[in-house]
Design a protein around this nucleic acid. Sequence first.
DNA 1: GGTTGGATAATTGGATACAAAAATCCAGCA
DNA 2: TGCTGGATTTTTGTATCCAATTATCCAACC
Lengths: 223, 223
Amino acid sequence: MSGSFATSVHLASTAEQEAYLHLQQALRIGRYKPGDRLIPEEIASEIGMSRMPVREAFRRLAADGLVTLRPNRGCVVAGLTLDEIHEIFEIRSVLEGLAVRLATPKMTTEIFEELERLLDRMERAGKSGSNDWVLRHQEFHAIIFNLSERPKLIRQITALHVAIEPYMRIWFDYVNKPLSAREEHQTLIDALRSGDPSHAETVMQEHIIATPNLLADYASPRR
Amino acid sequence: MSGSFATSVHLASTAEQEAYLHLQQALRIGRYKPGDRLIPEEIASEIGMSRMPVREAFRRLAADGLVTLRPNRGCVVAGLTLDEIHEIFEIRSVLEGLAVRLATPKMTTEIFEELERLLDRMERAGKSGSNDWVLRHQEFHAIIFNLSERPKLIRQITALHVAIEPYMRIWFDYVNKPLSAREEHQTLIDALRSGDPSHAETVMQEHIIATPNLLADYASPRR
DNA sequence: GGTTGGATAATTGGATACAAAAATCCAGCA
DNA sequence: TGCTGGATTTTTGTATCCAATTATCCAACC
């Protein structure tokens, strides 16, 4: 709710940043479908600027893996193939595994309480059919990996979460994930409570790698 | 030796690509030092183009973590603090660990021979004091992680190698690494020969994480 | 009827020009 | 002598313009 407003207020930032956030948001919620061409002029006039900052935003989106950029061929929404989705989950598993290993000694009672609260919110969002479930789920993971206090690690994991977000939304529509999610994430909390970093790492890796097999329904038309 | 030529021949590609490769190369060999400001006009006239493609190249370099970009403040070479170097090695350890886990079943006699040959070349480059040692070392790792056949994983690992390359060069000047490198990498080969993916993963993780502690001499002035 | 080739239109890439922001410098003041 | 404030200079960000590349469409030919 803050996002759509911020763009018009020009509060903090440059046009390029605005274009980047605008497009990232649009891609995250799946407004554009994989394979769609992003026409600079369209987007530029939509946000009220020229093509130039939009072009630069494209570069950043490409670096995030959200779009594909080919010389003289424009900008295309980067649909992920099943293999690519699987790969992202593989990478996430070791990255978030590392993060949770580093986070384990830093857990406090307050943070455990926060995680439990989020689990409740996830469940509620899931039952109401709200798409917020995906965001709550991301938040749950973010609380943990943010504790690692490794900026680059956090940035990379976050980028992966953003890249798979539209697929998570679709997945949420297909299978009713939230039902099994509760106990799965409870297992994660239990592993963290054990205080054993290696154990927590293993559990996180298994938790993440278990997911993509269930995503098999949604493949992208092209890249 | 092909690099300096390709830029003048305009063989394949756009100006932005040229600027990107030019700057990446310059940053890899340490031509610019951490904290240096990169002035678009300077670089533009140097390669013979306008500021625009250079600006876009900056974006890509920033995504790679090679430079830092702040609004209205220009482009600064991203010096890595010791903490950041350590973090990159941590990330490398799990990423290349995953890669070697996937690569282990794909090893062939030919590839083992290639690795052994590279080990020889590394040693020779090390003894002659040539900076090529860093490149040979990267190649050694690349042969292994390329076998994983995971494009995104490979891309990420490669980006990390590029980011730490100047530090590896300096490190190579300080401590005479190549002496101990031979047996360290031989251990890696042995682990791969064992055929046990988990074991190879563990050995790779330990191999990588052992490195940054020795890099403690070179800290960057600022970020 | 299907395919190839060329002319035309649309789109992208790059250069220049202009506006806005930041850094610098210098004068005035305490 | 050191600090503050404002004008100037420098640098960055955005828009517009032009060139180059690619896509489209239609006609001629096989």
